[in-house]
Design a protein around this nucleic acid. Structure first.
Lengths: 228, 228
DNA sequence: CCCAACTCTGGCATTCAGTGCCAGGATAGA
DNA sequence: TCTATCCTGGCACTGAATGCCAGAGTTGGG
């Protein structure tokens, strides 16, 4: 009768089902224990808290992502971009958990805070990684870049969570587009070309139809307002 | 014997003292009730939860900031920048609460999550405000800009929390510098100059010593890699 | 094969956050 | 003054979370 150990995933799926059916608050640990065959005491031991059951799978992903970053020595920004892609995939490939969790999170401020804290952990990890690679002088830039990448990630993620039935290719295209958008704007912040100290940043926005000459002309005019 | 109602601030200060002295977990609501003269039941009614006592003052600030944003029709980015300044001032002007809270937050993951959730609320408010003003087409940009402003704010805030004794002018100078840094880079994302649709963004970083000609030359080279 | 050390599990008891209910006192308005 | 309303505090209860202990299963060494 060697009852095989009930897997983490099985418990999470059962709990998510109960939460979705009867609400998070109204679901008790005793209920989850009864539904899974795992004792209440063991649930607390293995997951820590009722909330933690909802995010248990996510924690594994976080560990994976951090491990990936640690092993990525080149092109920190590209590594962070890939890491964000891993996170996004973590959601998309497991809708059975992430979709009901999304609806639960929307309904319960407490769970929302928890979700926010998760993404903040990624942001912090990204920021520290970038600072580590780019140097302490870039800690502000690293923080801003990490925040931007996370914001772009969340932007696309939310659209998928609201419309999960959409074509996978479309979703991924949107993700990559958002990542390109933010990482293009971010790269210069982390890699000033010269080694000289306090560089200046120039940002120009111009119509996509404009030729290089026109772009140069406008920038020249902006740099030298008093000129001819 | 009309016992005057104990103010929110008095309760918060007493609770912060207890938390700091005996730890957050070990401080019970009964203890806070005994220390303040407010009944345990009324504490829950007025603050909602033990955690909420720590962040009660902060909630008022949040309401103020959101009200400020709603009443700021012009130059959304400048308004957000001012809002961030208000938040920063909310911390700096009340070290009696924010400093011990910082140390508590560092020690207890749960409280840290709560703090993170607070700043996420600001970020969300900023993002929505920017999207509202700039148009739905800029929702991604709004999210990125809001995240960047918050990141810069938090960057300076953390340095103050670690070194609260520093000269006020220095602190504020650092704050304004960080805000200039991020808002300079962010403004073009929200305000493409022409009305034409999908503009392109150019970001260049160059040594502060470089003359305008040198800057133009480099940009020209970057725009036309195959050129002479 | 056997015993010992270790690990994992479940049951039990306890603490304490959080909530619903109700009664008493203060206050404002007619 | 009488009444409706609000705020407070006491009481009882649910349920999350933790410590303690005992039993079952597993591993490793002799």
């Amino acid at each position: 009768m060697a009852q095989a150990r009930v897997s983490t995933r099985e418990v999470v799926l059962a709990a998510v089902g109960l939460f979705s059916d009867h609400g998070f608050e109204r679901t008790t640990m005793d209920g989850i224990a009864a539904a899974t065959g795992v004792s209440r005491r063991s649930l607390f031991r293995r997951f820590g808290s009722k909330e933690d059951i909802l995010f248990a799978e996510h924690d594994e992903l976080f560990a994976t992502v951090v491990g990936y970053l640690d092993a990525s020595p080149d092109d920190p920004l590209a590594a962070v971009r890939s890491a964000a892609r891993m996170v996004f995939q973590g959601y998309v490939r497991d809708p059975e958990i992430t979709l009901p969790r999304y609806h639960l999170v929307r309904a319960h401020p407490r769970l929302r805070d928890r979700e926010v804290a998760m993404t903040a952990r990624y942001q912090s990890a990204f920021s520290h990684y970038l600072t580590e690679r780019a140097g302490a002088a870039f800690s502000l830039a690293s923080g801003v870049v990490a925040a931007s990448v996370i914001a772009a990630h969340n932007h696309v993620l939310r659209s998928w969570l609201r419309e999960p039935g959409e074509d996978q290719e479309t979703v991924w295209a949107r993700f990559d587009e958002a990542m390109s958008y933010v990482s293009t704007a971010a790269r210069p912040l982390l890699e000033p070309e010269g080694g000289s100290e306090p560089d200046r940043v120039l940002v120009a926005v111009y119509p996509s139809g404009a030729g290089n000459d026109e772009v140069l002309r406008r920038i020249g005019a902006a740099l030298d307002p008093g000129g001819p």
